[in-house]
Design a protein around this nucleic acid. Structure first.
Lengths: 166, 166
DNA sequence: GTATGGTTCGTTACAATATAACATCTCAAT
DNA sequence: ATTGAGATGTTATATTGTAACGAACCATAC
């Protein structure tokens, strides 16, 4: 089922989510780690759309499936999924979003729309290149980056400028 | 009193902090807003060093001065100082750091050292330029950015490679 | 088989971070 | 004196995240 009621960039989201879940399962086998039921369910819930999801929302949503779920249940699954690179934490929202490029471990930036709440992951090589130069200038050794941009996405901008016909 | 026991880039920190506080006071007058005792004290506590400071640590530190201080006291002061551009929130640490460029409202990136915990604000024009190009490509209108890089700063790298003489 | 050990999960309790809501105070302008 | 805006006091609570410990599971070695 696609997200037909949402207006962000239309795409076949059931394909999108299935691709992600299938690849994640493959990678777990390759890496010899366990994609347990809980972990898979959390990953599916995060992939339900392209929004960032909060841990306690995940907890509410998973309870019908795992009635014993507690905060630790969720945070453990999130830790696992992050270690495997399947999801990103959105620091400025205290929330989590599915990673759209599971194979290559790129640094990414996140474009977060205030209006539709979609999060778009971009690799932005020129930005990353400029960042590396800046690190060199500063003598800084980078280990981890969080680059989060809040604003209005292309789709919302368009629909804001195109009022409904009726 | 300078921070002689810390090893990050030596500078005259009492000058550094006084400059910041004086300028903040000036700007408040120019803008017709009140730098009240609480707000000034919080700003001073944040400027005590170049580390990011957590709200509840500020609360503990301000209690000797403002015995009635409660969480809301701190968060209100932090809100004010952020609105005025005197401090930044470090999203990935849930903490706050003094802004080192009060006059010009640049977007900045933060280099956060895991070892000495210093936070260096940099303007990195080439990075910001590359970001603007990326936004244009994506059709994204940016309102606010959080660019936070965790790693090891130049000073720590040096001192790590230069073991003590004795 | 059963011991051993690593991983995952259940469970309880709590720590840490942040906000809501409403009362009170202050002080300048009227 | 009165009023109104901004700042603070105060209580309560919401939200986010961890610690700690035991039980269950399961593969491997003895």
């Amino acid at each position: 089922m696609t997200n037909s009621t949402e207006h962000p960039a239309p795409h076949n989201h059931s394909l999108c989510i299935n691709t992600a879940l299938t690849l994640a399962a493959q990678l777990c086998i390759e890496r010899g780690v366990q994609l347990t039921a809980i972990r898979q369910q959390v990953l599916e819930l995060i992939w339900a759309d392209h929004h960032a999801v909060k841990a306690y929302d995940l907890l509410e949503r998973i309870k019908p499936l795992q009635s014993s779920a507690k905060p630790a249940t969720i945070y453990r699954a999130l830790d696992f999924l992050r270690e495997q690179g399947f999801i990103h934490r959105v620091e400025s929202l205290n929330a989590f979003v599915g990673c759209t490029d599971l194979r290559s471990i790129h640094e990414q930036l996140l474009l977060i729309c205030k209006q539709c709440e979609n999060v778009e992951e971009r690799h932005a090589d020129s930005v990353m290149q400029a960042l590396r130069q800046e690190f060199a200038l500063a003598g800084f050794t980078a280990h981890h980056q969080a680059i989060e941009i809040h604003g209005i996405c292309a789709t919302c901008t368009q629909s804001n400028n195109t009022p409904p016909l009726n």
